[in-house]
């Protein structure tokens, strides 16, 4: 029995699109070109095949996504994942939250932070630095953004450099984008 997942989890569900993924046999040269620059070109996910219907944005979106999450320097990869998780909680994107929470756990080799965030949200008892990161991400993700000068100052006070703050802005905002695709164009299914 498969069922739709409604609660936050680190067990990554399957993503079932509401929209028919592109059939590679019908793909245009531009679509094939855009699909080539995704991280795995052996098996293209249904998600990317759905996005391939709008090839002009996908062409830029794939390298942008990889740059924001994996570029060298700046904020650690694990802390960028907290930016992604904060946005995904606000937007209740169960799939994105699962993928990026479990990636945080792998990178940080610690499951207690995500467990606390899933249980208590911004009130989670985590380190002051992670708390400032999570709080900023959650507030920036509201509509309209609720982040203010004191939330920004809290990042500085928690020890983040300007380059790290920029990466946090980018990863949190990026998931305002990703959540609005993932959560609206399909649903997370557990087997």
């Amino acid at each position: 029995m498969s069922k739709v997942v409604h609660e936050f989890t680190t067990a990554i569900p399957e993503w079932k699109p509401y929209v028919r993924p592109l059939d590679l046999a019908e793909a245009s040269p531009a679509q094939l070109e855009a699909l080539k620059i995704t991280p795995s070109n052996t098996k293209v996910s249904d998600y990317v095949l759905v996005l391939a219907h709008d090839v002009e944005t996908l062409t830029h979106r794939s390298p942008l996504f990889n740059g924001v999450m994996y570029n060298k320097g700046g904020l650690s990869r694990a802390e960028r994942e907290i930016g992604a998780v904060g946005a995904s909680i606000v937007n209740r994107c169960i799939y994105c939250a699962a993928v990026h929470a479990s990636r945080y756990n792998q990178l940080a080799k610690d499951e207690t932070v995500i467990a606390a965030i899933f249980a208590d949200g911004v009130d989670a008892e985590i380190s002051p630095r992670l708390k400032a990161i999570l709080n900023f991400s959650v507030k920036l993700s509201k509509c309209p953004s609720d982040a203010d000068a004191s939330d920004m100052q809290a990042l500085v006070d928690a020890g983040l450099g300007r380059d790290e703050i920029l990466d946090l802005i980018l990863s949190s905002s990026l998931f305002g984008w990703a959540n609005r695709l993932m959560h609206t164009l399909g649903e997370p299914i557990a087997e």
Binding site: A147, D151, R162, I169, S172, S173, G176, L181
Partner: peptide, 27 residues
């Protein structure tokens, strides 16, 4: 459907990047 979704998702992203940078500018 996908074009419409990308439009609203991208603009939501772009507005947040600018909002964050503006706060950074105020430091």
């Amino acid at each position: 459907l996908v074009r419409l979704s990308e439009l609203v998702a991208f603009v939501s992203y772009q507005i947040r990047v600018a909002a964050g940078l503006r706060l950074m500018r105020g430091l």
